[in-house]
Design a protein around this nucleic acid. Structure first.
Lengths: 123, 123
DNA sequence: TTCTATCAACGAAACGTTTCGTAGGAGAAT
DNA sequence: ATTCTCCTACGAAACGTTTCGTTGATAGAA
């Protein structure tokens, strides 16, 4: 089982999911737009992530190419289930209610969720 | 603004929410049922939490009585919004879909969520 | 009063995460 | 060939979290 990614690691994974397999330089360019950080910091993080199995890398070219080992959806699911246990005492209902308890949900999103509810109820 | 509680801190907060205001000893008794840990570890954690403002304490008796500063709901909301940003790129829809994408949701829960959708859509 | 149990406070060790400086190698440019 | 640039690897510092041993105070029991 893969370990839970840390905050910095998750940030890098997000970039890999968005951009697809990337070099350290490519990830660094994105990160440094938001955050002042050194190149070797990102390199080191990605090396550690490779050790942990969070990413795999292709070393055939001089600049290694990294990609996320797990899909974004699978990782999202894991993190959500983790939060469910740690903060919601396993109450999925409470989590969903909290997630929807905001005014920034569009009609379209509501419709989409309804559709999911329908398909769940059908099975 | 209160800092995001760490893992160990959240565990203690959960106990305080469940049991109401408690002494270190009372929290320790609960924690030690699950986890082998020393009393002073819990004490130190709760002292730090008091410094951070995560808990407040009544020092009038010899055994100080600690209580969570924020409600469970408010904290849940904060943690969920944090995860929404960090792991779901702000896509609330994706988060809710992932949360419901499991077979362990009862009919009653689905109905409850539907009701919430109705009230959201009404406003 | 003296002993015992319980408590808060403190400091520091142990551990994990994040940071980056430095070194060394490989390839491109001069 | 020498220099310049870009890359990986490594080690360690800096920082935050978690752990607990020790100390000193206080209250209750003997």
């Amino acid at each position: 089982m893969l370990p839970k990614p840390t905050e910095a690691e998750l940030n890098i994974l997000s970039i890999l999911w968005q951009q697809g397999p990337s070099t350290v330089r490519q990830v660094y360019e994105v990160v440094s737009q938001t955050k002042e950080v050194g190149y070797t910091t990102i390199l080191k993080l990605m090396q550690i992530m490779a050790e942990k199995g969070l990413v795999s890398r292709d070393e055939s070219s001089k600049s290694h190419i990294y990609k996320a080992s797990q899909s974004q959806q699978k990782t999202q699911k894991n993190l959500l289930e983790d939060l469910l246990e740690r903060a919601f005492s396993g109450s999925r209902r409470q989590l969903v209610l909290q997630a929807l308890n905001t005014d920034s949900v569009s009609k379209e999103e509501l419709a989409e969720i309804r559709a999911l509810l329908d398909s769940l109820e059908a099975s």
